[in-house]
């Protein structure tokens, strides 16, 4: 893997998630995501039988993989990865073939009919460039998401991943996902 000076990633402490949807609305506002589509979402899973029930909420969005399948299959290079690891789409190069959507193991992309292009979470790259946090990270009431630079040993995410165990989703897809679900 190429050496990066920065490697942005997310750690998600899903047991803090109360499915309040603040992240979803914040993203919609920040990125002008049209209704019916979403760059991030919350998975729910109910297990067990009455009265021994258990429910889990788990926020998810683009995993900003180390070897992103979407970037590989893109015929025009509209899907690209920044030096800091953020995977993004350049809408002016996107032809709307949706091959990337099919290639994404996390179904993290969606097609915007109104613009004819594919969109996805880019960790609010424009905010990152201003030194701000992604909108979902900033707004979260229970602070489920921890965002930061993995290569910076002083960052919260770096330290928490040294301390706590985590799980990566669908590792077998081989794309090197970078959302660390804390256990």
């Amino acid at each position: 893997m190429a050496m990066r000076t920065k490697r942005y990633a997310l750690a998600i402490d899903a047991k803090k998630c109360i499915d309040c949807k603040a992240c979803v609305v914040a993203c919609r506002a920040e990125n002008g995501v049209p209704l019916g589509k979403s760059r991030n979402w919350i998975n729910e899973e109910l297990r067990g039988d009455w009265p021994k029930l258990m429910e889990v909420f788990e926020p998810e969005q683009c995993h900003h993989c180390e070897a992103p399948a979407c970037v590989r299959v893109c015929p025009t290079g509209a899907s690209y990865q920044r030096a800091d690891g953020v995977v993004a789409v350049n809408p002016s190069e996107c032809v709307g073939c949706r091959y990337c959507m099919i290639a994404c193991p996390y179904d993290a992309r969606f097609f915007r009919e109104d613009l004819g292009v594919v969109e996805k979470c880019d960790l609010c790259a424009h905010r990152l460039d201003r030194g701000e946090l992604p909108a979902c990270v900033e707004t979260c009431p229970s602070k489920v998401r921890i965002f930061g630079d993995l290569n910076d040993p002083t960052s919260e995410i770096h330290q928490i991943l040294e301390k706590r165990q985590y799980r990566l989703k669908k590792r077998e897809a081989g794309t090197g996902p970078q959302i660390y679900y804390l256990l």
């Binding site: 015929p75 025009t76 290079g77 190069e93 996107c94 032809v95 709307g96 073939c97 949706r98 097609f111 915007r112 009919e113 613009l115 004819g116 292009v117 594919v118």
Partner: peptide, 13 residues
């Protein structure tokens, strides 16, 4: 495609 008129871009790359 999302943009039929952008198909030419396939051949710029």
């Amino acid at each position: 495609l999302g943009h039929w008129y952008r198909a030419y871009k396939l051949f710029l790359h």
